[in-house]
């Protein structure tokens, strides 16, 4: 099964350095994505080549204390799917969340109340930053490692992966949960996106609220064959190498804005981990050209075997 994956020749391979390619060595332990297609990986894969209908937000379990916005339930849902059964309580896990616009629903609701002269709901004070839902996640899973929130200028996936690579250079950390979330445009953020585009920016709003998560580690965890992120590199890799893995791109899951690359990475991970593809190149259409392609490799491509572990990047 490889629905929606378009095969195109490329000049960059996971084992073949290219100009400005940055090698990474991140074992992917889990991934999740939630959006108009639903909240399950199976739903996501089903819609790689079957367009979702209207751009709607999936049904999400409420998160106590968080109101008005889907930002926090989305974060919690994809975090829960990745973390459950895969992390130990303690300081070895870091969490990094990225969003270009953040929880614009809450920000704009609070601002409209202010402009209208109405009293703020104190709950908006608590959820005014993404820290709060990360605090909720940290309590639920006993995570005492560092938690950070980033606002990249465009695509979320590569800044998250580079941050994970940086954090995993710390001997005190062994896993990093990467979270990306974008909400459908509000009147203000739509306006801001347009102005940014006029200035050459590549960020754009998703058609509906979306989130994705990838749990990465220095080393893979048994059971199951490892899937590695082996590098990020230029997008202009379309022509010369017939041996390169195929690209995974899909527009059918709906426009995911700055989270598109991360959503596609979650789908690619599911395909490779499920044995439906040996390796995939994952474009991030929102990223700058030089860092718009993510390389994902499974055991066959790397020559990995459970006996000798050779071939790990």
């Amino acid at each position: 099964m490889n629905p929606g994956a378009r095969t195109s020749p490329a000049t960059t391979r996971p084992d073949q350095p290219a100009s400005r390619r940055q090698a990474l060595r991140l074992a992917v332990l889990a991934s999740a994505a939630a959006g108009p297609w639903g909240t399950d990986q199976a739903d996501l894969l089903r819609h790689l080549d079957v367009p979702v209908g209207a751009a709607t937000t999936p049904d999400l379990p409420a998160v106590p204390g968080f109101v008005e916005s889907t930002f926090n339930p989305l974060v919690h849902e994809v975090a829960r799917q990745c973390l459950t059964g895969r992390v130990r309580a303690g300081a070895g896990t870091a969490v990094v969340l990225a969003s270009v616009m953040g929880d614009a629903t809450t920000t704009d609701l609070a601002s409209q109340l202010l402009v209208a002269g109405q009293v703020h709901n104190p709950l908006l004070f608590m959820q005014a930053t993404a820290n709060a839902v990360l605090g909720f996640v940290s309590r639920e899973f006993g995570i005492t490692g560092p938690m950070s929130v980033l606002s990249p200028p465009d695509g979320l996936a590569v800044p998250l992966l580079l941050t994970a690579d940086l954090l995993l250079a710390d001997p005190e950390l062994d896993r990093v949960l990467l979270l990306g979330v974008e909400l459908a445009g509000t009147k203000r953020t739509e306006h801001a996106y347009r102005r940014l585009a006029e200035q050459g920016g590549r960020a754009h709003p998703p058609a509906a609220d979306v989130a994705a998560a990838v749990l990465v580690a220095r080393e893979p965890v048994q059971p199951g064959p490892p899937v590695w992120i082996t590098g990020v590199g230029p997008a202009a890799v379309a022509a010369a190498d017939p041996a390169a893995p195929p690209h995974l791109t899909t527009d059918h899951v709906g426009r995911c804005g700055s989270a598109q690359g991360l959503v596609q990475l979650a789908a690619a991970h599911a395909l490779v981990a499920g044995g439906h593809a040996d390796a995939l190149l994952v474009p991030d259409p929102a990223a700058r050209d030089e860092l718009a392609l993510i390389e994902l490799a499974g055991p066959a491509t790397l020559g990995w075997s459970t006996q000798d572990k050779e071939g790990t990047p």
Partner: peptide, 28 residues
Amino acid sequence: PVDSVPAHLAEGLAARFGLRGRHLAVTN
């Protein structure tokens, strides 16, 4: 409204001083 976007402020700073590395906002 672009001034409300954290990364835009980081990008503006890099552009203003011609800083050629990567730029990112941290919002926690």
